[in-house]
Amino acid sequence: MGKRLRERIERNIEQGKKMLSLFLTAGYPKPEMTNDIIRACDKAGVDFIELGIPFSDPIADGPVIQKASDIALKNGINLNAIFETVKKVREESDIPIILMGYVNPVFQMGFERFFETCANTGVDGLILPDFPIEESSTYFPLLKKLDIDLIHLIAPNTKPERIEKIDRASTAFVYCTAYTGVTGKDNRPLPETERFLREIGQNLNHPVFIGFGIKTAADFQYYTRYAAGVIVGSAFIKYLSETDGKEIDSAVRSFISNIR
């Protein structure tokens, strides 16, 4: 339910707390670890989770998430397995969960059935980057009825009038990419990007979260000057690949303490 996500965001904004969200690919590095990682994130104070649906052709992703996606697919992860994981998490945790992925697996399951299953299993929101507002708007009434937030993206090259349109179509928050490109790049913001971030931080009706290439405490500091929070993906995936065998709770805690 989107309410859980929206209330969490509103509460933090009221309290002046900048938020941190983590992305992980479902079933990576091992299928049985996803539940533990999400619960560890919850305990460590992560504000919400983006759970990646693996896809064979992740065109918006850099090498780190591409590889995680490949491994998850080899691990047999599909939407049913992801819904089972969410159900399991929901037995003990209330952390908002957003499913993030490419649209074709959703299309194959059937949009209505997918959205309803999301609502029934305790998914709060969705990010489907290759499902822009023109293609997805027919489902807005259903999503509203089911209380699922479909999060839309903007980028530093999005035109002002389109940003306005996307802001109007949004619920919960707007996802802004830190640059034009694929996920997980080393990135130093350009002066024009800084101007852009300042403007959207001030002018949008919805809170802004910034993602793509965010890795360090300095990045967190920098981007949360303009945004309500940041989303860390590739850096977390990379960290997870290096934590093999370590105790998950403390590993996740230590990752987060290095960022926020």
Binding site: E134, H152, G181
Partner: peptide, 19 residues
């Protein structure tokens, strides 16, 4: 106008490519 041939076609791209 939306790039559809019947039910096929469309513009299923990340926002970055939209402009």
């Amino acid at each position: 106008n939306d790039g559809y041939f019947g039910r096929f076609g469309g513009k299923f791209v990340p926002e970055i490519l939209r402009p």
